[in-house]
Design a protein around this nucleic acid. Sequence first.
DNA 1: TGCACGATGAAC
DNA 2: TTCATCGTGCAC
Length: 183
Amino acid sequence: MNKLPRSFYDRDTRLVAQELLGKFLIHKSGGVERVGKIVEVEAYLGEHDLAAHSSKGLTARTKTMFGPPGFAYVYLIYGIHHCMNVVTEREAHASAVLLRALEPVKNLEGRTCGPGLLCRAINIDRRLNAHDLLSSEFFIADPEAAEKFSIVKRPRIGVDYAKHWAKRQLRFYIKDNPFVSRR
DNA sequence: TGCACGATGAAC
DNA sequence: TTCATCGTGCAC
C-alpha cells in the first residue's frame, strides 16, 4: 500500500479531512497488523477555532497540534476514551483532523463507529501521541483501488460550547456508509 | 493545590 | 437522561 507523504498533510485542513475519507489507517502492534478504512472525520481549524483544543493556546497537551503535519495527536477524553487526530498544515498552525469512524478491513476488534471505539478497536492510546504517521508501524495509506463515493457535510459532534463554530459544517463522512457513527 | 469539565459511550 | 473516570487548564 502507498503511504501518504508529509505533503499530503501539509495542506488546507478541510481538504485533508475530506481526502482522508476512503484512506486506510494501519497500526501494527504486538505482531498484529490492524487496518481500517476511514469513513468519518472532523476538521479542527486552528487557534481561532473555538472548538479546537489549540484555541487555548500552546499547552503541554496541545503541543502536538502545534507541531509539524503528519503526526498523531492522541488524547484521553472523559477519563475513559482515547481520540485520534492527524495534525495538518504548517508547524504552529495548530490544526488537525479527528478520526471518528472506521470500516473494518483487517484484524479490528469490536465496534469502530465513534472516536473512542475506533481507538480501542485498532489499539491506539495516548502512548501514540506525537507519533510520526510516516513510520512503518503506524501510518495512513491509499487503498489499492479507489472507490467512488459522495461526501456528506454536517456540524461537528459534541462542540455546542464553541458558539458560532459549533454550526460550521466541518464533519465529513462517506454517504450511506453503514459504519458512520451517527446520522 | 484544588476543582470544574470535557472533540464519548453505555446503561437506564 | 445519567453516569463512569481522570488529565488538563485555570482559578485561587
